[in-house]
Design a protein around this nucleic acid. Structure first.
Lengths: 243, 243
DNA sequence: CGTACTATTGATAGATATCAACGCTGGTGG
DNA sequence: CCACCAGCGTTGATATCTATCAATAGTACG
């Protein structure tokens, strides 16, 4: 099933014709290896990138050698809708795992935006991205490392469930602990210890990039997770196991 | 001068007619005292709030008693454009200082959005808000407390200069150290010490809510500040003292 | 005058980073 | 096929940063 359509329909149903158009646009994805830059800070890209498979991220590299990941992109996510309005990228987008990516040229995007239902769904998506960013700020600024990390894992469960990439409370998480640390503002070493504590507390299992949430209700309570900020049309229906 | 028009024109010039329309919409602001909630998490407001004077913030209060400020709103900023698409607020918006606020009803917003130049400028504004959020994530996650705080002070200089609220490298900062701490994810005590270090290093002066940047070039270098993410049409012209 | 809020200081505890090292794995070249 | 190497996860010891607790002083305000 097409992850873009699934995602946009998490906001509101799309007319048949719109679905067909989206199917058509996303027909021939391009395979991109892991750790490849799709767009770099300073670029003025002429196409919008849409992730169809795999994990990618936004990030900024700092002079002191560290980097901060500011978004985790999963199938169905637009990487850089910004370029419709802003001329230059203020951050870099890179694949994390092996990905399949669609490049949509400006005229085609504008064609999509002429469909009211699609346009609304895209702006919904952009606003949810912003809400996610606010939640990440809370993860880093106000939650303990264990809770913030747990919160992120809850969020990914919901986002991946939205596009049909979960298996109950299990999902593929093809990122390294270093990358997890870059998103949580933590060291690799500390990230490792945080994960160990989550494992020891019986909250998760994580081996071979396979994450299992052992008790979603406890993980949500522990991390203070409330899916409101994802603005799903029907949150109760989306994740059956929800509290 | 109207801060909304000044801000939107930092992106691109607006036609005379659009300016007149905006003038008209923003004619009768409402005075709101400090520390007042404009919109609360869970609300489904029917009007959009526009800040014309004073400081406000977005924030979320956590069960553990702390709160995270996720945005600092200054004159010319829209508080909750989201409500055009999302039904319920996922965070609270409160005044910090005495403010003057415009409430714009849905039909009036839609009338504004029919003007192409205004619509583009509003989306520019929304995208810049997102870019600011990414930078705050870096402030908290990847920069030392002193550097993150310094970065925030640089950002506010640019944003306030945009709407004509600076006096050279000085501006009014009507927020408490506790509030500053809530935005940087720091304790009041630690915030106080961070500010003292910035003062001792000769970077700033801050007394009676009046912030003076003693050496903008040094403060920018110290904090790693690069105004690109604000996507101003003409950054060099905006702040004369820029490096 | 008393009360609340804000800024400030000192002492201490807890969280996180840093440095160094090791084992495991998969790939690669000899 | 084996030796080597790079990337990843892991562990221990230590340093640095930040939170917590407690107290004081100044200020504004009723």
């Amino acid at each position: 099933m097409n992850p873009l359509i699934r995602k946009l329909e998490a906001f509101a149903p799309l007319p048949e014709a719109d679905q067909r158009l989206l199917e058509q646009v996303t027909r021939f994805p391009q395979v991109v290896g892991p750790k490849v830059d799709l767009v770099r800070e300073g670029d003025t890209p002429k196409a919008v990138h849409l992730l169809m498979d795999g994990f990618a991220c936004r990030h900024k590299d700092l002079p002191n050698g560290t980097r901060q990941i500011t978004a985790c992109l999963v199938p169905g996510d637009f990487c850089d809708l910004h370029v419709l309005i802003l001329k230059t990228m203020d951050h870099t987008i890179s694949t994390l795992s092996l990905c399949r990516v669609i490049e949509i040229l400006q005229p085609q995007i504008l064609e999509l935006m002429e469909r009211p239902a699609i346009a609304r769904a895209m702006w919904w998506s952009a606003l949810v991205d912003e809400a996610i960013l606010r939640e990440w700020l809370i993860n880093i600024g106000s939650r303990a490392a264990e809770q913030g990390t747990a919160h992120l894992l809850c969020e990914l469960l919901f986002r991946l469930e939205m596009v049909g990439l979960t298996d109950g409370d299990r999902y593929e998480l093809p990122i390294t602990q270093a990358e997890l640390g870059d998103t949580m503002g933590l060291t690799v070493v500390h990230t490792n210890r945080v994960l160990q504590r989550l494992r020891k507390d019986g909250l998760i299992t994580l081996t071979n990039n396979s994450l299992v949430i052992l008790d979603i209700a406890r993980l949500k309570a522990f991390s203070g997770f409330n899916p409101n900020y994802l603005h799903l049309s029907n949150p109760n229906e989306t994740v059956p196991q929800s509290l």
